[in-house]
Simulated scan of single mutants.
Amino acid sequence: VVLFDEADAMFAKRGEVKGSNDRHANMQSGYLLQRLEGFNGFAVLTTNLRANIDSAFTRRFDEVVHFETPGPDVRALLWRSILGDSAPKDLPVDALAQVYDLAGGSIRACIESAAFAAASAGRPVTVGDLLMGIETEYDKLGRLFKRVPV
């Protein structure tokens, strides 16, 4: 079994050759295609940017599994699970999960940002810390953050 995490970087779409770097990247893709064809094992590719993978690779996949962004119920479970015992007593988990559409990795990143902020201030995590973490994550995702009372 071979795992290619963030596969969009290695299996990227080939492009027009404008310089030696483009030519090298296209040659690398061709080489990978040949190696993948002759590979007798099980290859798993993971990506958040499936559209960036060259279609020549996707034609060779036996299966493509797409994971939808979790709904509010699953997001609430993720918030509770990741926060564990460090959850503020007044945390409106269901409201956060309903209002802020985030995947599991982003929820984890929000909680980590909140935990670092609280630790640097020498206090427990607050709802304000979590909202700051959500705002930071929305910014990283290039999404507009609107603070909603929760």
Rank of each mutant, 00 (worst) to 15 (best):
T58I: 15
R59H: 15
D73V: 10
S55H: 07
L49V: 05
F67D: 08
F39P: 03
T69C: 14
R50V: 07
R60M: 11
G38T: 08
V44E: 03
G41D: 03
N40W: 10
F67K: 04
R60S: 12
T46S: 14
D62S: 08
H66P: 00
I53Y: 03
G38C: 03
L49M: 11
D73P: 00
V74H: 02
V74L: 10
E68L: 15
V65H: 02
L49S: 02
H66M: 12
F39A: 09
V44A: 08
F57E: 02
P70N: 03
V44H: 12
S55Y: 04
T46E: 06
V64A: 13
E63S: 06
N40Q: 14
D54S: 06
G38V: 01
A56H: 10
F61Q: 09
T58P: 01
T46M: 15
V65W: 00
D62W: 08
T47P: 02
L45T: 04
E63G: 01
N40V: 09
D54R: 04
V44S: 06
V64T: 05
E63I: 01
G71Y: 14
I53F: 04
R50D: 03
F57A: 15
A56V: 08
G71N: 15
A51E: 06
T69Q: 13
F42N: 04
P70W: 15
L45N: 02
R59I: 13
E68W: 10
F61T: 02
R59A: 12
E68I: 14
F61K: 03
R60G: 08
P70S: 11
I53G: 01
V44G: 00
F67T: 05
F67H: 01
A51D: 06
A56Q: 07
V64Y: 11
G38H: 11
R50W: 02
S55F: 02
F57I: 09
R60Y: 09
H66K: 11
F61W: 02
D54C: 07
E63M: 09
I53Q: 02
D73H: 06
N52Q: 10
E68H: 12
F57C: 08
D73C: 02
D73A: 06
S55N: 07
P70R: 10
A51H: 09
V44Y: 11
A51Y: 11
I53D: 01
N40C: 12
L49D: 06
L45M: 13
F39C: 01
L49Y: 10
F67Q: 02
V74Q: 00
R50L: 14
F42S: 02
